Computed example of a mutant assay.
Amino acid sequence: MESIVIGIFLVIVDGSPDDTVQVLRFSPPTSEKVLLAAGAWDGTIRVWLVNDNGQCEGKAQQSIPAPILDAEWTDDGARLFIAAADKDVRLWDLASNQVAVVGAHDGPVKTCHWINGNNYQCLMTGSYDKSLRFWDMRQLPKQTMMLKLDLPERVYCADVVYPMAAVGLASKKIFIYNLEGGPQFVKEIESQLKYQLRCLSIFRNKDNQPCGFAIGSIEGRVGVQMVETSNTKETFTFKCHRSAELVNGYQEIFAVNDITFHPQHGTLITCGSDGRYSMWDKDARTKLKTSEAHPLPITCVHIHASGTILAYAMGYDWSKGHEGNAQQGSKIVLHKCLEDMRPRSKKT
């Protein structure tokens, strides 16, 4: 696939949802065209075609009767899985514009991830019902649950980079699974963070194999954790999304709403309730860049597989309660990122 080149600094996407965007997902690299999907709390999910110059053209829209909490593309970029607060998992076929329920939980479905294994394919979903479920999509429209794993707490965040799955729970524990040949529990890791987990993203080693994860909490802090290591220096935390100056004698601390790793550079971007995004080099333990403050919190971020472009969404995240809700809707921005997220050369 050709890389996207954005000639200008950023692009505002037309037709953003009226409510806060919970999830942004670029179509996979195997897709013929570059598509961007956005799922929102008002139950709408939209898809845009992203042209080579970064301009966006609305291609499809659907609505379901519940807030959308996660979304995931199929390998061909022709269909989207949708996880929602009404306990259902849906599949949206863009060509026919039909939406079908393909799985269900006993509580809101917080995460969904497509697993493309060496000898099987399935959808992994995590829920507030304290379970992880795996769905066989070969018998559609029949719902076929391959496996149900009971968990000690609600699923708050998760990620899959085959053959690893990492699932963050309300108890601040992270469960690690090996998906090779079928999901197998590997270990339970206690979070280094003291407060509620908000987001999780797996990173790869120099051999391009998944080896660890970064987690973000509501307390303006990120933890970097290797799954298998005897070197304690490879596991650490850092502060982020906090006010530079004191406000009424105190430092303001904001939630880390999302984390995404750059597919080529291995650097990461975080976004927060302070309305800023920051780019980091975890290996050099340095900050690469921080944006200016946006008028609203940044709720989610995603990077296209080419590594040239990122998308982020602004909207109210209820971090200041009901009184902070001015019903300002949402805004989605495309931004070039290849150079901004490139690790800096080491000084000799």
Results as ranks from 00 to 15, higher is better:
residue 2 E to D: 12
residue 5 V to C: 14
residue 5 V to R: 12
residue 7 G to S: 14
residue 8 I to Y: 13
residue 13 V to I: 15
residue 15 G to W: 05
residue 15 G to V: 05
residue 18 D to S: 13
residue 24 L to Q: 05
residue 31 S to L: 02
residue 31 S to N: 09
residue 32 E to W: 05
residue 32 E to I: 12
residue 42 D to V: 03
residue 43 G to K: 06
residue 44 T to Y: 02
residue 44 T to K: 11
residue 45 I to N: 07
residue 45 I to L: 15
residue 46 R to M: 09
residue 49 L to M: 10
residue 59 K to P: 01
residue 60 A to H: 12
residue 61 Q to L: 12
residue 61 Q to P: 02
residue 65 P to R: 04
residue 68 I to D: 03
residue 68 I to F: 08
residue 72 E to W: 03
residue 72 E to A: 05
residue 73 W to V: 00
residue 74 T to M: 14
residue 76 D to A: 11
residue 76 D to W: 08
residue 76 D to G: 07
residue 78 A to C: 11
residue 79 R to Y: 01
residue 80 L to M: 13
residue 82 I to F: 00
residue 88 D to Q: 09
residue 88 D to Y: 09
residue 89 V to W: 05
residue 93 D to G: 11
residue 93 D to F: 09
residue 93 D to A: 11
residue 95 A to N: 11
residue 95 A to Q: 15
residue 95 A to M: 09
residue 96 S to I: 12
residue 97 N to Q: 15
residue 98 Q to Y: 02
residue 99 V to G: 01
residue 100 A to I: 15
residue 103 G to K: 00
residue 107 G to T: 02
residue 110 K to P: 00
residue 111 T to I: 15
residue 112 C to H: 00
residue 112 C to G: 05
residue 113 H to S: 07
residue 114 W to R: 09
residue 117 G to W: 10
residue 119 N to A: 12
residue 124 M to P: 01
residue 125 T to M: 03
residue 127 S to L: 09
residue 133 R to H: 08
residue 138 R to W: 04
residue 143 Q to S: 13
residue 148 K to M: 13
residue 152 P to G: 04
residue 166 A to K: 00
residue 168 G to I: 09
residue 174 I to F: 02
residue 178 N to R: 07
residue 179 L to T: 03
residue 180 E to Q: 14
residue 185 F to A: 15
residue 186 V to F: 11
residue 189 I to S: 04
residue 199 C to T: 11
residue 203 F to N: 04
residue 210 P to C: 14
residue 210 P to V: 07
residue 215 I to Y: 00
residue 218 I to V: 14
residue 219 E to P: 07
residue 226 M to I: 08
residue 228 E to V: 14
residue 232 T to W: 03
residue 235 T to I: 15
residue 239 K to F: 11
residue 245 E to G: 00
residue 246 L to F: 04
residue 247 V to I: 07
residue 249 G to M: 06
residue 252 E to Y: 03
residue 257 N to H: 10
residue 259 I to M: 00
residue 260 T to Q: 08
residue 266 G to W: 11
residue 267 T to C: 14
residue 271 C to G: 05
residue 281 D to H: 11
residue 285 R to I: 03
residue 287 K to W: 07
residue 288 L to V: 13
residue 297 P to Y: 09
residue 298 I to D: 08
residue 300 C to F: 01
residue 301 V to P: 03
residue 303 I to V: 15
residue 308 T to Q: 10
residue 308 T to V: 00
residue 309 I to E: 04
residue 311 A to D: 04
residue 312 Y to V: 01
residue 313 A to Q: 07
residue 316 Y to D: 14
residue 317 D to S: 10
residue 318 W to I: 02
residue 319 S to T: 12
residue 321 G to D: 08
residue 327 Q to I: 05
residue 328 Q to D: 11
residue 329 G to M: 06
residue 329 G to W: 04
residue 329 G to R: 07
residue 335 H to P: 12
residue 337 C to E: 03
residue 339 E to P: 01
residue 347 K to P: 01
residue 347 K to G: 04
residue 348 T to M: 08
